[in-house]
Simulated scan of single mutants.
Amino acid sequence: MYAQIVLFDGFDPLDVIAPFEVLAAGSDAVGGELIVDLVSAEGPRAVLSGTRGLVLNATARLDPTRPGYVVVPGVSGPTVGDPDEGVETIPVLLARFGDTDAAPLLRQALRNPAVTVAAVCGGSLALAMAGLIEERHAVTHVQGMDMLEATGVHAVPARVVDDGDLVSAGGVTSGLDLGLHILEREYGPRIAHAVEALFEYERRGTVWRNSGRQPVVV
């Protein structure tokens, strides 16, 4: 099984590194059955993040036919400023994702029953603004929940939202929770717990799923 973590210009480094580290440790725990790659739509290349010029290297091209997971990070950049004056704010960077070569590949991945697309923080907004997850359940950073709802996505205020072949996580550090949820979902709680113990980190909250009884009082 593969876990492809997508790099694109302006990505948020922690959105990438948190799930990468967790999934890599999980791969070790299952004897290498899980292959974890940093990928880009263009193939192997150096990809510039949105934080202080940090660069990560994609080692392969995003392949929507590979079974497993495709993880989409959010972006980092200024939260305020006038785009007409050349300030590339986070909403501008997220909207630009829809014009990249990654968007049609993610559309293919979402149509592939062997693939689950996962998103960290603004990654779900990038997918939503590209018109890829309308009417689905997802979460993003707390500051982007209204925008997520405005795209036609059912925004759920949970740490991790599992909507079947679409899994999303909230703010930046929730990439750790996303990675651990993927490990538990695929390999069971013992593997997830072993990685939790290694990282000295415990997941927060209940994973939300669109199932079970509706509460009478919220």
Rank of each mutant, 00 (worst) to 15 (best):
V139E: 03
I90P: 01
P44T: 09
G31A: 04
V47F: 09
L132M: 13
S124M: 11
R45V: 04
V87F: 03
D28K: 09
V39R: 06
A118I: 06
T51G: 00
E85T: 00
G32T: 05
M147N: 05
D146T: 13
G53N: 09
R96E: 08
L62I: 03
H137D: 03
A109H: 09
V87S: 03
A118T: 09
V55M: 10
S76F: 14
T140Q: 04
P73G: 06
V80E: 13
R52W: 04
D82R: 10
G53V: 13
M147K: 13
A109Q: 10
A119D: 04
A58K: 09
L132W: 11
R136S: 02
V55C: 01
D63C: 02
N57I: 04
R107S: 11
P78A: 15
T79S: 10
E42H: 12
L34G: 05
D101N: 09
T65V: 07
V72F: 09
A102H: 14
A126F: 08
P104Y: 03
L54G: 00
A58H: 05
G144V: 01
L62D: 00
Q108Y: 04
L48S: 11
G26V: 04
L38T: 12
G50F: 02
D146N: 14
A119M: 05
R66C: 00
L148K: 06
V87L: 03
A119F: 07
I133C: 10
G53H: 12
A58Y: 07
N57L: 09
L105T: 01
H137Y: 14
A41C: 04
G144Y: 15
G31Q: 06
D82L: 08
V142F: 10
E135M: 07
G26A: 02
T140K: 08
A119W: 07
G152I: 09
M145K: 14
A46V: 00
T59D: 02
R136E: 00
T116I: 03
A118P: 03
G131K: 11
I35C: 02
G50D: 11
V139Y: 02
V117K: 11
R52E: 05
G77R: 12
V87T: 14
S124N: 07
V70P: 02
V139R: 08
G123C: 13
T140A: 14
D37S: 15
E149C: 02
A103C: 06
G43V: 11
A109Y: 07
T151P: 05
G131L: 09
S40R: 14
I133M: 10
L148D: 02
D84E: 15
A130C: 11
T151M: 12
T59G: 13
T140H: 05
L23K: 04
R96D: 09
P91F: 13
G86H: 06
A58I: 10
R107T: 06
A60N: 08
G68W: 00
L110V: 11
A128M: 13
L34K: 12
V72I: 15
P104V: 03
A103Y: 08
L125K: 03
R111I: 02
V80R: 14
V139A: 03
G81A: 10
G32Y: 07
V87R: 07
N112Q: 08
V30R: 06
T140C: 11
R107H: 08
L23Y: 04
P113Q: 03
A60M: 01
